[in-house]
Design a protein around this nucleic acid. Structure first.
Lengths: 360, 360
DNA sequence: CTGTTAGCGCCTTCAT
DNA sequence: ATGAAGGCGCTAACAG
């Protein structure tokens, strides 16, 4: 009967390895951490025991000792129903995390508690509890946000996906929504429209405010008054969009719309117009906002406003990784500009939803 | 000038709270863990200090002491290019985790290191290092898998999405792929086909083997020989599918196909047929496998084989949560049966891809 | 080169 | 009811 130590269910500690190989715990620790000062022969004996006994260092013990974890946090500044993370963004995020952090051996820890509606607004418990240090803030920041400054003060690397007026030093990789709104509005003004409706998403959030501000700026530049009734806050609910479009278009003097709802859904837009007895492309022009550059959301639209959110986030995450590894400093201040694209006559084929990604 | 203790950057410990409130650390611990034996007045003083000083228990210290974390692990038995997690499955998974674990305050920790291609096959380091105990195995199990038995022996709650022939006691919530293949084949046999091509995904994995086995079983039942050249292993790459279809159909005696590639992509199927000078619905019938019940993947298909993977996983995760909380025992043994649906003449509208979920 | 010790922050005895 | 002490597994500092 051989020593059945290796098949034992018990989890071994560094001391077990030391005892079995007849060295001190410190030596084992040195071997594991690839440090000098251990005889080659001893090193081999230790590594052999480590493999045979299936020893693995205890993550929590290490974290306690080192005051750092090997985890990146993903945290949600809002609840799911207030501002749901889009499916396509989630997919993209997953890819990026695999690419950037997976290969480096980090764990990626999601804290969905606040997103699920618990924890009343303190969405950064993972940082306070030191479950992780560095983190990604996945979602829009509320204008009333009080958490980011505390995060900032803590000194942990972090990056958000919108700026924050109330805290300009906020580490963020974002898109200039104000500019997007301004360009959208200008485009329609130049085409001769004077009463332009705005479907405004993210009411109460930074990115919602920027939408409104850009819209108002363009109007003021043109010397036109701002009619508050033309700004229609909407949620991500279909009904909300349909009703919003319907309500705005009931005013026959409204001859143009800006869809900054971020829903990228042609069906609800058409339905809203239909209920008002209007049709896009006929007596009505629209600029549709989208996060992609390769797909026409609504062929009847006169233009698409493309928001490079992915590009911004990608650079933000790269910077975050560099910050964590000490190659760069924070805070991150990245701002991408949007692009207005006139809708092509021949809409390109809208790719079908693939269940599996294609392997390149 | 007030005591600026609360605005200090330093992270406080339980002893700081004790010192400030003039009690012992144990008392603070009792208060935090809602245990009896503390005077109400003391309790309030402690809680006040906790709030003011923004004290939070240290996750790693707690984990070390309690030998349990509040994390659920998501681990990947294969690399991304061998068997990529589908986008729709990832989205669904995210929803489920929010629903089941987010509301209970668990962290969800992804270990993407093995998925990214590092760690040569030992995909469960998170468990060995005790970064988490309970875990979800997101992806197919290789026939050569050696990790699951060790996981099982460890005694941690876990659940996989396929069974494992070499380890029948494996905790799994899965779909009966063998039955799906058998029913698909039978259906085509009953329609008079005798040479039936099989596009077989997951070669080398349990779910690939089950596909092949079910196909062969149906043929044997019908007294027909198994022609190995009719079984075409494919990857998730478009080319692989196109070539597979083309190659199978170059044999004009082949009058039917089973698409168990799991790609759910009508375009590549049609393209493969076109290259062989064939067309679905004309001289050719096909059964297409899908993970959904509400969408026609290929209108020309004579039937769709619907695999209730989501339903199985959902029940698996519910069971996992119950296992963690001691309400039920493991291992999990859930097997859902697939359904063959004849393709309706009028294909239902294929829902557009929504960027944001609709809030219910 | 090796061994001993102390302490990270928490919780749970045991003793008061 | 409270206070002191010890240990979870790891590593850095300090002897030998």
């Amino acid at each position: 009967m051989s020593k059945t130590e290796s098949s034992s269910k018990a989890r071994h500690t560094i001391r077990d390895i030391a005892r079995v190989t007849g060295v001190s715990p410190k030596t084992v620790s040195f071997v594991l951490n690839d440090r000098e000062g251990v005889a080659e022969q001893t090193r081999k004996r230790v590594l052999k025991a480590v493999k045979e006994m299936e020893y693995h260092p205890h993550a929590a013990a290490r974290a306690l000792r080192d005051r750092v974890t090997r985890s990146i946090g993903v945290i949600f500044p809002t609840t799911a129903d207030a501002a749901p993370l889009s499916q396509s963004l989630l997919n993209w995020l997953h890819e990026e995390f695999i690419h950037i952090f997976g290969s480096r051996g980090y764990y990626v820890t999601f804290d969905m508690a606040s997103y699920a509606g618990s924890r009343n607004g303190d969405y950064a418990r993972g940082v306070w509890e030191q479950a992780f240090g560095p983190c990604f803030l996945a979602g829009p920041l509320a204008l009333t946000d009080r958490v980011v400054p505390r995060l900032h003060e803590r000194g942990v690397p972090y990056v958000a996906v919108t700026r924050l007026d109330s805290f300009p030093q906020c580490s963020a990789a974002s898109v200039d929504y104000e500019q997007a709104a301004c360009l959208s509005t200008r485009h329609l003004l130049e085409k001769g429209h004077t009463r332009i409706g705005l479907l405004q998403a993210f009411q109460g959030y930074q990115s919602g405010l920027e939408r409104r501000r850009g819209y108002e700026r363009a109007l003021r530049e043109a010397g036109l008054p701002v009619d508050a009734s033309l700004i229609r806050p909407v949620t991500f609910d279909s009904h909300s969009i349909v009703n919003g479009v319907h309500a705005l278009l009931s005013d026959r003097a409204v001859t143009a719309l800006i869809d900054s709802s971020s829903t990228e859904d042609p069906v609800v837009l058409r339905e809203g117009a239909r209920r008002a007895g209007r049709r896009f492309g006929k007596d009505l022009e629209i600029v549709v906002w989208t996060y992609r550059y390769d797909t026409v959301v609504l062929p009847e639209a006169c233009a698409h406003m493309c928001l490079p959110l992915r590009q911004a986030s990608a650079e933000g995450l790269e910077h975050l990784a560099a910050w964590i590894e000490g190659r760069r400093e924070g805070p991150i201040q990245i701002l991408y500009q949007p692009t207005l694209l006139e809708t092509p006559r021949e809409a390109p084929f809208n790719d079908p939803l693939r269940v599996f990604h294609e392997t390149a």
